[in-house]
Design a protein around this nucleic acid. Sequence first.
DNA 1: GGGAGATTGTTTCTTTGTAAACAAATTTTG
DNA 2: CAAAATTTGTTTACAAAGAAACAATCTCCC
Lengths: 151, 151
Amino acid sequence: MDMPIRTADEVELDRLNSALGFLMRLAQLKIYERFFEEVGEHNLKPGEFSVLWVILHNPGIRQSVLGQRLMIKRAHMTKLIRALEDQNLVSRKVPDGDRRAVEITLTPEAVTRVKQASQWFFTYEDSVGANLTGDERQQLTALLRKFVGLG
Amino acid sequence: MDMPIRTADEVELDRLNSALGFLMRLAQLKIYERFFEEVGEHNLKPGEFSVLWVILHNPGIRQSVLGQRLMIKRAHMTKLIRALEDQNLVSRKVPDGDRRAVEITLTPEAVTRVKQASQWFFTYEDSVGANLTGDERQQLTALLRKFVGLG
DNA sequence: GGGAGATTGTTTCTTTGTAAACAAATTTTG
DNA sequence: CAAAATTTGTTTACAAAGAAACAATCTCCC
């Protein structure tokens, strides 16, 4: 009857079961967890990789713009960029036009490194959602892209 | 030509555009951000609410099981529960059967409080994904539920 | 041209969550 | 049954991320 639950599967979530925010959080945690199981310490974390990837494809991008697109707060971006600079992966340049801003570029080493890292990164990304059919995966990415407003 | 990007919309994401993990992270951040815009400080954060909600529907649930279901690590769960206990929202009991475990129950005050909070919480949850059609929203939740292995 | 206000990045402080080592109780197994 | 291994929760130390206050620069508008 009122026996306390013993296993996670028996837990009653009630309305939480169809709450989008809740499901999304669970999904993201699951992905993140799997990432470290599969990829382990590849010395470039997913967050760092995506920052470097975007800089690779948008050389000279400004910190603020990078942050807006990746939803990283300015304060945090400062730390990320400095960490990358310390590893000699990016260089910062204050443009003449606007001396408040900072434009970021990859160092040559980083270009090589990121291209190489992209292999395992996207291999992993492709394996995410292996418990869905191809169609479902396709649908899911399309819906998410619309949801976050990426045309 | 090589003009640096100026606005977030122009940023080239390349393959990141269809990377499930990346999109999921973006989606979750967007939800979280909107949460605080809309709900503000409702003195119960989304994480706390979901913990309390699950305890409400599974009285006497064990910390470990709760953590497994909500993907909260044991160390963190300890802190969450203690914080809730300090607010007099939950009570802990070591069961006779297994003296390592801790069974959690809501206090009567918490029952009232959670039921009340559930009104704004689920109102918010329903508003998440307002830029999708009803069908799309439905699809998305179904896909996420399958993805995380619920039901 | 010269303030009023907005942007951009940094710094400092705090919150949130994880990792690793531990203690106590339980289960497994030889 | 007793030693070894596992589970459960806690503690301590640390990393990731955000908030608020700040300084420098730029934009707008009179």
